[in-house]
Nucleic acid binder design. Structure first.
Length: 554
RNA sequence: GCGCCUGUAGCUCAGUUGGAUAGAGCAGCAGCCUUCUAAGCUGUUUGUCAGGGGUUCGAUUCCCUUCAGGCGCACCA
C-alpha cells in the first residue's frame, strides 16, 4: 500500500483541520481543478469547515493554505474563492512514478481490511444459453470482483445454479419432447416449455450420447436421465460462454446440493429446523410461513408449501446460511431490477440467521433494453426470443462487448441496439483505448530498431522539472490510477475505472501528437521512454481489471 | 394502489454525501500525415440538468409535488 498523491493531500488536510480547528472526520474532496486553474489538485475543505467554524471560506482557505506550505512535498498552494489549489513538487511526482513501476502494491488500497466477500452474480437458470443481460452481469461482476480484491477484500465469485425447481422440470420435459421428435414420435411441447431451437440441439446431443431407447424405460427413470444430461449440457455451454468472455467463477453452487450434499446431509431441512426453533415460522392454511414482516417485509412468505415441498425461498435461506458458514463477512448479490422486491426478503433472512443486515449488499444491475434499429425487442427465454451472449461475442468481439457493458454505471438502464452494435464496431470506444496500447508498443519497437535499448536505460537521471504540459498531464493521470480503483470500489462502479482509463489514454494521445519520444536528445528520450513504461504498466493493470486484451499492434 | 430505477446537448451517457464557467463519446463543421500506427490530434457548434414549488449565501445534486418511460408486488425461480 503506497501513498498516492491524493491520499497524501488528504492526510495533510486532515492534520491541518485537526490542529487548526479541532475538526475531525470531515468529508472533503480532493479533485482536479477546472480547466485553466494553474494547479494539479483542488480541495473544497474550507467550505465544509466554514460551516462548522462559522467563518468565511476565504479566511479558512487562507489559514489552511499557509499551513500546507509547511508540508515537504507541497510546491505551491493558492486559496481561490475558498478552494485550495495545490501543486506538489516534481520530485514527489517522480518518486510516485518510480513506485508505480517497481511495486505491485502501488495499485492496491486497504479499504476492505481483509474482509471476505462472497460475490454472486449471473446465476442464470440452466435452461438456456446466456443472453445479453447475463453478459452485462458477467462483465460487471467479474470486474467488480477484481476491483474489490485490489481494495483489500478477499473476494470469492460464485454462480448459483437453480437445478432444483419447476423451471428445471419444465426444461427437462421440453428436451424430452424434442427428443421424441427426433425419433419421429408424436409429442407436445409443454405448455410453458422452452420454445427456442437450442433445445433441439440438446435433444440431439442426448440422442447421440444415450441412444434412442430412452422411451423403453419408465417415465421417472427417463426423466432423471434427461434432467441430468440436460443440466450437464447447459452448464457446460454456459461455462464455455463465460470462459470465452473471460469471466471466472470460483464456485458453481448447485441448489440441489442444499438438499443432498456429499455427506448425504439435507442442509435445508437442518436450517428449517433451526429457524423454526427460533420462532420465526408459523403454520397457516397448511403451509409454513416465515414472519419476514418482523424484519420490514411487506408480507410474510411461504417456506414450505401445502404439498410439503420447500419453496425456492427456503432454498435461499439455506444458501445464505451456507455462505455465512463458509466464513464470509459480506454477502454480495448482483441481481436484475425485477428482483428489487426481493431485497427485503434477503434482509429478513440474514437477520433471522442472527447476522447484521449490513453484511448483505444487494446491487441491482439495471435492465438492458434490446433494440433493433431503434425498435424495441422483447426478450423471453421461454419464447426463445433473445440475443445470446455468444452471438454478441461473435459479432463484436469480447473486448468491445465487455467495454460497452462496463462503461455504463450499474444503475443506469442500458439501451442496446443490436443492429447498431454490429455496424458500429469500427468506432467503438474500446479501440481508442486499445489503440493507445498498440501505439506505445510501436514506439518501443521503433526504439529498438533505431538502437535505443529501452531495457538497459538508466532512468535515475530522469528529472521531472520543466515537464511539457502534455507530459505533466499524463503523469498526473497515471499516479491517480490507484485512487480511481479505490473510488470504483467505494461506489461499486467499474464505470469509474473505465472513465478513468479513457481519460488517461486521451492524455497519451495528445502527448503522442505533441511530443516525439525517440529524439536526438538522450535525456528527453529517456524521460519519455520512462513515462511510456509507466503508462504501459498502468494500462496493463487497468486492462486486466476490465478484462480487455492489450493488443500490441492493430 | 404501493414500492424500486430512470428523465442532463440531435443520439448514447458521465457528473448527484450542495460548491469555481454542467462534461465526454458519437453525429455536424473547419484544419493536421516526406518524422515513433490518422482506429489519432487540434479547433468549433449545441443545454429551461423533465415541469412547478420549497430549504440555502449557493441546488443538476436535498425536501414536496406533477408529468413521462421502465420494472416489481406468487404456496414460479
Amino acid at each position: 500500500m503506497t501513498m498516492t498523491a491524493k491520499s497524501y493531500i488528504e492526510k495533510a488536510i486532515r492534520e491541518i483541520a485537526k490542529s487548526l480547528y479541532a475538526a475531525e472526520g470531515i468529508d472533503f474532496k480532493v479533485e482536479r481543478p477546472p480547466e485553466g486553474a494553474a494547479a494539479d489538485y483542488a480541495v473544497n475543505a474550507p467550505f465544509l469547515l466554514s460551516k462548522m467554524m462559522k467563518k468565511a471560506p476565504m479566511v479558512i482557505g487562507g489559514e489552511m493554505a499557509l499551513a500546507l506550505t509547511a508540508y515537504e512535498n507541497v510546491a505551491h498552494v493558492e486559496n481561490v474563492k475558498g478552494y485550495l489549489n495545490i501543486t506538489l513538487k516534481s520530485e514527489y511526482y517522480k518518486k510516485l512514478i518510480d513506485t508505480l513501476l517497481s511495486e505491485e502494491s502501488f495499485f492496491k488500497n486497504s479499504l476492505g481490511q481483509g474482509k471476505k466477500i462472497n460475490l454472486e452474480f449471473v446465476s442464470a437458470n440452466p435452461v438456456g444459453p446466456l443472453n445479453i443481460v447475463s453478459g452485462r452481469a458477467a462483465s460487471y461482476g467479474d470486474t467488480l470482483g477484481k476491483i474489490l480484491n485490489l481494495s483489500g477484500y478477499k473476494v470469492n465469485t460464485e454462480f448459483y445454479v437453480n437445478d432444483f425447481g419447476r423451471q428445471m422440470t419444465l426444461f427437462t420435459q421440453t428436451v424430452e419432447a424434442r427428443y421424441a421428435h427426433l425419433l419421429g414420435l408424436e409429442a407436445h411441447l409443454p405448455e410453458e416449455g422452452y420454445k427456442g431451437d437450442y433445445v433441439i440441439a440438446v435433444a440431439q446431443a442426448l440422442k447421440d450420447a444415450r441412444g434412442e431407447n430412452l422411451f423403453d424405460m419408465d417415465a421417472s427413470a427417463r426423466a432423471a436421465i434427461i434432467k441430468e444430461f440436460s443440466l450437464g449440457y447447459m452448464l457446460h455451454s454456459q461455462k464455455e460462454t463465460l470462459k470465452k468472455f473471460c469471466v471466472h467463477f470460483d464456485l458453481w453452487f448447485l441448489e440441489s446440493s442444499l438438499y443432498e450434499n456429499e455427506k448425504k446431509v439435507n442442509e435445508t431441512e437442518l436450517i428449517f429446523q433451526a429457524i423454526s426453533a427460533k420462532g420465526y415460522f408459523y403454520e397457516n392454511e397448511g403451509a409454513i410461513w416465515f414472519r419476514t414482516t418482523d424484519f420490514g417485509d411487506d408480507k410474510d412468505r411461504v417456506v414450505k408449501k401445502q404439498d410439503g415441498a420447500f419453496t425456492y425461498f427456503m432454498s435461499d435461506i439455506a444458501y445464505m446460511a451456507n455462505k455465512k458458514n463458509r466464513g464470509f463477512d459480506y454477502i454480495f448479490n448482483i441481481m436484475g431490477p425485477d428482483h428489487h422486491g426481493y431485497i427485503s426478503r434477503l434482509e429478513a433472512i440474514i437477520q433471522a440467521l442472527g447476522y447484521d443486515k449490513n453484511d448483505l449488499k444487494v446491487i441491482l444491475l439495471q435492465q438492458v433494453n434490446l433494440l433493433n434499429e431503434g425498435e424495441k425487442m422483447k426478450m423471453s427465454k421461454r419464447a426463445g426470443q433473445f440475443v445470446s451472449l455468444d452471438d454478441l461475442i461473435a459479432a463484436v468481439g469480447v473486448d468491445a462487448a465487455r467495454y460497452y457493458f462496463l462503461m455504463r454505471n450499474y444503475n443506469s438502464h442500458l439501451d442496446f441496439d443490436v443492429a447498431l452494435a454490429m455496424e458500429k464496431t469500427d468506432n467503438n470506444p474500446v479501440f481508442y483505448v486499445q489503440y493507445a496500447f498498440a501505439r506505445l508498443c510501436s514506439v518501443f519497437k521503433h526504439a529498438t530498431e533505431t538502437g535505443v535499448d529501452i531495457n538497459s536505460m538508466d532512468f535515475h537521471t530522469v528529472k521531472f522539472e520543466a515537464l511539457e504540459k502534455e507530459e505533466k498531464a499524463l503523469v498526473l493521470e497515471m499516479i491517480d490510477l490507484p485512487a480511481a480503483i479505490k473510488e470504483a470500489a467505494l461506489k461499486y462502479s467499474p464505470s469509474v475505472l473505465v472513465q478513468y482509463t479513457f481519460d488517461m489514454v486521451s492524455k497519451f494521445h495528445t502527448f503522442y501528437a505533441k511530443c516525439r519520444v525517440i529524439t536526438d536528445d538522450a535525456q528527453t528520450t529517456a524521460k519519455r521512454i520512462y513515462l511510456l513504461k509507466a503508462l504501459k504498466k498502468s494500462l496493463t493493470v487497468a486492462f486486466k481489471i476490465m478484462g480487455i486484451t492489450p493488443v500490441e499492434s492493430m
